[in-house]
Design a binder for these strands. Structure first.
Length: 428
RNA sequence: GCGGGCGUCGCCAAGUGGUUAAGGCAGCGGCUUGUGGCGCCGCUAUUCGGGGGUUCGAAUCCCCUCGCUCGCCCCA
């Protein structure tokens, strides 16, 4: 009919870069999410949920006009009221906006976490989709270097707890805004002298966003940069000292890390500590988790100056890593499969399944109406151990046959006749 | 936006110009009208992502297009 016609002419499918998570994969996602919630709970971090759609201005101002994310990757459109809207490309700006708007910052520092879909218009590839999912943490109103370490250690411990290994943690200090301004000057003039040795995109960035040139992957530029002035050499003593305190606290916690003086990260709001957790198993998209301090962002978005730090981790990439290690879904316990044939029996089975569920028992009711052997075959294939079988004979007497499918190869087939009370006693 | 690889049933996959497009898995039905494994039998692509073209003849050759995938860019 109509559907047939459509599927013949053009098959309807999800938009590019938007993927379905099928029942086979959702258990792993749920497992990760609940592990995350667990870690956050233990660290007194509270969940915040913000809208997926925000005014475009929020991201333009928060993330930075010169970034790629804002420049070419946002899903933006005008709504019916001519408002310029954007599907959030990341979580931090929204969380900060929500905290300001709802006066959270007047109630003392906030430890917050969020999780949900983000949208960026990019070419999909391994570990990168247009709709992707992040779990993130934002510490608003925390200045102490220990807060940097606390947030990082939560991310690190969480990932380790999931059983991941082969992860590397890189950190750097971007200094405060003055540090970056001076460094920017130093770097730009140094690069200007060697401009013709730079690759094309780096040349374009030279005045737009020079710090990003530091993690260029162009081999020529990379080589050139080996001798470039480093940010850490222009850091003020205070910034320097702050970074050292972060490092020594990291050492005290015995979290292994590498200093990467070229780690700059793509969003404008970062300052001081910046970090990334990467895995070699991910191919080109190696970063599983990234974050840093953003002391200027709250003010930039209209709040009072509030030192803050946070991170986000990419669920898809995490899942990719976990599925590489043939993670077995200990899955939900299938308890009872109910098989019935005959009018009375089927009515009773429907009633029974509901009663059992209301007693917290997991029940799958066979609704096929096919022969007993078919229904039992299905129960067996779905790996159920216990089957409740009801025919009209039993239904008349209000009884059920309980079968143990694991008893197949034994001489006496395990079957017993029982009533509801006995069933409940056994399984509830 | 730019490169490379790929597109045959829900999934895996044979087939590279010639009569009816293998096979496996899954699904459904039967052997077994009230009893599961295993086994056997049957059914499931008028069609090879879509559209044009070449040819007596195309899944197989050519062009265009769409999609997937990996990489560049960028980020989680």
């Amino acid at each position: 009919m109509a559907l047939d016609v459509i599927s013949r002419l053009e098959k309807l499918q999800a938009l590019r870069g938007m993927v379905d998570l099928l029942p086979k994969e959702t258990p792993l996602w749920q497992w990760v999410e609940s592990a995350a919630r667990d870690h956050f709970k233990r660290a007194a971090i509270k969940e915040i949920r913000t809208p997926i759609l925000e005014t475009t201005k929020l991201f333009a101002r928060g993330i930075g006009e010169s970034t790629d994310v804002v420049g070419k990757e946002m899903y933006s459109f005008l709504d019916q009221g001519e408002r310029n809207c954007t599907l959030r490309p990341e979580g931090t700006a929204s969380v900060v906006r929500a905290a300001i708007q709802n006066g959270l910052l007047n109630q003392g520092p906030q430890r917050l976490w969020y999780s949900g879909p983000m949208f960026r218009y990019e070419r999909p590839q391994a570990g990168r989709q247009r709709q992707f999912h992040q779990i993130g943490v934002e510490y608003l109103g925390f200045d102490d270097p220990r807060s940097d370490v606390e947030t990082i250690s939560i991310a690190w411990d969480f990932l380790c707890d999931l059983g991941l290994s082969g992860l590397a943690l890189e950190i750097n200090s971007l200094g405060n805004s003055e540090d970056r301004a001076t460094y920017r000057k130093v770097l730009v003039s140094w690069l200007e002298e060697r401009q013709n040795h730079l690759d094309k995109t780096s040349q374009e960035r030279l005045h737009k966003n020079p710090l990003r040139i530091l993690d260029s992957k162009d081999p020529g530029t990379k080589k050139l940069l080996l001798d470039a002035p480093l940010l850490k050499d222009v850091l003020t003593p205070e910034s320097q000292e702050r970074f050292e305190r972060v490092q020594s606290a990291m050492n005290a916690l015995k979290i292994p890390f590498h200093l990467n003086p070229r780690l700059v990260r793509g969003l404008d709001y970062y300052s001081h500590t910046a970090f990334e957790i990467t895995s070699e198993e991910l191919g080109a998209q190696a970063t599983v988790c990234g974050g840093g301090r953003y002391d200027g962002l709250v003010e930039q978005l209209g709040g009072t100056s509030t030192p803050s730090i946070g991170w986000a981790l990419g669920m898809e990439r995490l899942i990719l890593l976990l599925s590489k290690k043939h993670f077995e879904t200990s899955g939900m316990e299938n308890k009872l499969y109910i098989v019935s044939k005959g009018e009375k029996a089927e009515a009773l089975a429907l009633l029974l399944s509901r009663t059992l569920r209301n007693h917290q028992i997991n029940v799958e009711l066979d609704l096929s109406g096919s022969a007993f052997n078919k229904q039992l075959k299905r129960a067996n294939r779905s790996n159920f151990r216990w089957v409740v079988l009801i025919g009209d004979n039993e239904a008349e007497k209000g009884e059920f046959i309980l079968k143990d499918l694991k008893g197949l190869h034994e001489d006496d087939p395990k079957e017993e006749l029982m009533r509801l009370e006995a069933l409940l006693e056994r399984f509830a």
